[in-house]
Design a protein around this nucleic acid. Structure first.
Lengths: 259, 259
DNA sequence: GTTTGTGAACAGTTTCACAGCT
DNA sequence: AGCTGTGAAACTGTTCACAAAC
């Protein structure tokens, strides 16, 4: 076994299945919209439609939280908003730091949905000394040297990494050492963290590749073809032992096929 | 049944499980890194470690693609890069449009990982006439009026929505009507699309809420408490019929608990 | 001896369908 | 009559463990 865990152990936290937890924010958003329109109660059918899931799933999900509905009537919107908020831990506020204030980090800092819902941007941190003091989204950027201090002074337990891939693991290690136990990673790298630290990743490039897979399938269905017949698949070296005849001195991969 | 599907039908596409498809980009990234270091072969154990999964899972995943390894040796890096790229449809290039060039849209346009791996930003589109013509990441922003024209002229089948939530469904409808069949949605809304259109969403706020849930659980374990005892849970109105006594005239929800 | 590929066991998730409460 | 809450069934995904290939 290696130095640290890479994946959280799918911890069926407190009896609530992970898949359910991942949907609670969706329900909460739909409920908040209903609440703003002063809708008093909602049925599982209506709420499920608003959240984009089916109603049986929604009822099962809510059953893990307790019996918060009324048979023959539906769910009290306000009450459910409160219960889900509480379950998600949104009745307290969570100071977060964003590390890496490039294009993406700045966009995140400016993102409204961040500030709402109990999350507060406690600090913006960047390695570039030239950025120090410059305000982004009204918050002055601080230098990476201050990272540990900032984490401790603000009691930060959630960190957002928006650095280049090369810096992400190092930043992650420092965040964890300073006491952060939840990390949202936007850098395209696999982070290794100790047990007890949660990592979630958001990866644009991965999402696009998944879409491309399905897109290709759709196209292939129409024409009966699997893909465009470009270079034929180079067969793996068949001679025993050394299998690396094909790799040229430049070591460059045609992974992306420029054309 | 409503006007359109909200969820793709979990289509176990071409025999490859969805969960496996979602990990292929991860393997590809790890393999590309190995390839750049001119590593000729890799074992399932090593590659799994680099991708942050366990080796049994990786072998099972690869078994869906075919038998591309050599027992006693491992996998040929170059060959596997090619096979996965092809499976994901990355041997062709995919023109994408980004709609909504605010902070986030601009960050996405500037994101390097976008341009690599077969994705090409074909156009940037924004509703603000003042932005039209202004170059972002070297690409001039075009007005929403041109959307249909752009999609068709460039044969775009993948669209990225980075607009405010309120505009997202409308933009989505126009993209779909113009021929887009895969959408990556950054707006915090549930999109409704017809059958045959894939939607993937990236939602910062949801990810943070999931982290908060686990974070709260960790805190609760230490102290034996479930949460901070703020306002006691308002009981659901017990009288039959009208259940909305508590909602004030401003209709604002205490979902977020300012303190 | 090493490492893949895979059937079989296990675990988690979704859907069904209906009993039970209002 | 209407809608929730939930066992049971069906399905999907993961892990185990070992035979087969090198």
């Amino acid at each position: 076994m290696a130095t640290g865990r890479t994946h959280r152990p799918a911890t069926r936290s407190r009896g609530i299945p992970e898949a359910t937890v991942a949907r609670l924010p969706l329900y909460l958003r739909a409920l908040t919209a209903l609440s703003e329109r002063s809708v008093p109660t909602v049925s599982s059918e209506e709420l499920a439609a608003a959240a984009g899931v089916n109603s049986a799933k929604l009822r099962k999900d809510f059953s893990y939280l307790g019996s918060y509905g009324t048979r023959g009537v539906g769910y009290d919107v306000e009450y459910l908003v409160y219960q889900i908020s509480r379950e998600l831990g949104l009745t307290q506020d969570w100071p977060v730091v964003i590390v890496g204030i490039g294009n993406l980090g700045a966009a995140l800092a400016n993102y409204g949905g961040f500030a709402s819902r109990g999350f507060r941007v406690a600090a913006l941190i960047d390695a570039d000394p030239a950025m120090a003091g410059k305000p982004v989204a009204g918050i002055p950027v601080q230098h990476t040297d201050e990272l540990e201090q900032i984490i401790r002074d603000n009691g930060v337990s959630i960190g957002v990494i928006a650095t280049p891939a090369g810096a992400a693991q190092q930043v992650c290690d420092r965040l964890v050492a300073a006491g952060v136990t939840s990390i949202l990673n936007f850098a395209p790298t696999v982070l290794t963290v100790p047990d007890g630290v949660d990592v979630r990743k958001v990866d644009l490039s991965i999402e696009l590749q998944i879409l491309a897979f399905h897109e290709q399938r759709k196209a292939g269905e129409e024409t009966g073809q699997t893909g465009p017949g470009s270079t034929p698949p180079a067969p793996p070296a068949r001679s025993a032992g050394v299998a690396a005849e094909r790799k040229g001195p430049d070591g460059d991969v045609p992974a992306v096929m420029p054309a």
